[in-house]
Every structure is written in C-alpha cells, then in structure tokens.
Simulated assay, not measured.
Amino acid sequence: MKKQTPGLSDAYALSTPEDSRRLYADWAGTYDQEFAADQDYLLPGLTAKAFAAAGGTGPVLDAGAGTGLCGEALRELGIEPVDATDISAAMLAEALRKDAYRDVIEANLLEGIPVPRGSYRGVVSSGTFTHGHLGPEVLPALLRVAAPGAWFALSVNAKFYEKGGFADALDRLLRGQWIKGLTLPELCIYGPRSTGAQKDDTALIALFQKV
C-alpha cells in the first residue's frame, strides 16, 4: 500500500518535537510541489517582502525555515546572507538544495539556537507560528541571537494569534522595552489557486525591531 503524503491537517495536529521530526521527514521530499505549489502558498514570499519593506538587512536567521521558501524569496530580493534553522534535518536538506543559505542549523527552538548572542541583523519566520507548532515561548531565544536594531518579520496564523498568547507576549516585550515599532499587517496565506480547507486563512506579520 502506498504511504499517504502528509498534509496541513497532519501538521496542525502535531503535539511534540518528535512528532514534528517524524512528519517533516515524511513530507520534505514532496512539500514544495504537493503543498506549496499546488496550494498557491504565498506566505514565505510575503514574509520576505514585509521584512525587506521594513528595512531589514542581512545577516538574517530564517527560523523554522523548512524547505527554504522564505530564504529563497529573501535571496531574490537581494537580502543576504541568510542562515536557516529548523527542527527537521530532512527539511533542511531540501533547503540546502536551493542554495539560498550560508549555513543550516538543526535546532529545537524551544531549547535555543546554538549561535553566539547578537549574531543576526534580522530574523524572519514563515509558517512556524501556527496550530500544532510553536508559540511565543520561543521569542526570547530569537531575541537573544538578534543584534540591537535587528528587524523581525514573524508570520503568525491569525486564528492562532490570540489563542497562542502572542498579543500578551508581544505587549510584555513592548512594555519591557525589548522591542519597538510593532505593526501587524494581515495577509492572505494562500493565493487564488488554493483549494484546501484553509484556503481563506490569513496571517499577521509581526514586524518589529529589537531595542
């Protein structure tokens, strides 16, 4: 019997880091075509464009980089160098094939990122802050590796934003003067060719600077 290709419903149902590694190991080889292309997945490119429009520059960390769609979009916008980090070695292997990254770092963001403090002038993330994945508990780890003044462009599934606690977390960071200039433009995750159950979903792009 042919093994069924994983899909978005499987990703949204994840509950542990090991579940994530297992799912994305199975999905890595078909993700770009059978999900991103077939479902007109716009979010990685839109996240990259939001980062560039805000004035973001390299070096950039792409957090939860997956197969490298956001890094590829950044490179097309002339933003380099970019490093990728993801929990899935299989997804990072696909990202390396795109030749969009200076380096790839296999890491569980809940446990931190093994790079020196202040290594990056920018941090992007597309598709990682959503159902079954990560919440705002990883923001301190991302802030640690960012230099003062670094721009962030983090996509957050709009339905997950309140449920996941992002509003409160970002408000605490603003009040604590860890970040400044927060805006939250809302964008469509998928284009008009999408036929999936989530085809009308939107994401908030949390744009801000580290103080």
Rank of each mutant, 00 (worst) to 15 (best):
Y12S: 03
D32T: 11
Y161G: 06
E111L: 09
Q209H: 14
F35I: 08
G135L: 12
Q209G: 05
Y101H: 11
A53N: 13
T57Y: 11
R22W: 11
R22V: 05
A25K: 05
P114S: 06
L14C: 05
G112I: 02
R144F: 01
D201V: 12
Q177I: 04
S20V: 00
R21Q: 03
V124M: 13
A93G: 12
L184K: 06
F208P: 08
Q33W: 00
T195Q: 15
L23W: 03
A93W: 04
V104Q: 08
Y12C: 02
Q33Y: 01
F208V: 02
A150R: 07
A167Q: 14
L42S: 07
T85G: 08
D83R: 11
A36Y: 03
G78V: 12
L61K: 05
G118V: 08
E186R: 09
D40A: 11
F208G: 06
L139I: 10
L139M: 15
P114R: 12
S194P: 04
I87C: 08
W178I: 00
A146W: 07
M1F: 10
D19N: 13
F160D: 01
A93F: 06
P140L: 06
D171V: 08
Y101L: 09
A37L: 06
Q209A: 14
L182P: 09
K49M: 11
D103G: 03
T202Y: 02
K210E: 01
E94R: 07
L96G: 15
G196K: 01
A100W: 09
T183Q: 10
A53M: 11
C188I: 03
T16E: 02
R193C: 00
P114A: 13
I189C: 15
A95V: 12
K163D: 08
R144P: 13
G56Y: 12
Q33N: 03
E106P: 09
C70I: 01
G66H: 06
L43C: 03
G78L: 14
H131Q: 12
I105H: 09
W178R: 14
L96Q: 13
I179F: 12
S119D: 03
A146E: 10
A95K: 08
A73V: 00
S125H: 07
P6V: 04
T5Y: 01
A150H: 14
Y161T: 00
P185V: 00
L8G: 00
R102T: 08
L69R: 05
A206S: 04
F51S: 04
L142V: 12
S15Q: 11
T183I: 11
K2L: 14
G132T: 13
E34G: 01
A197M: 07
S125P: 03
T128Q: 13
S88E: 01
K2M: 11
A141Y: 13
W151A: 02
E106A: 15
A11L: 04
D62Q: 06
A147V: 05
K3F: 05
G112N: 10
F166Y: 12
M91N: 07
E72N: 11
L61Q: 04
A169Q: 08
G58F: 08
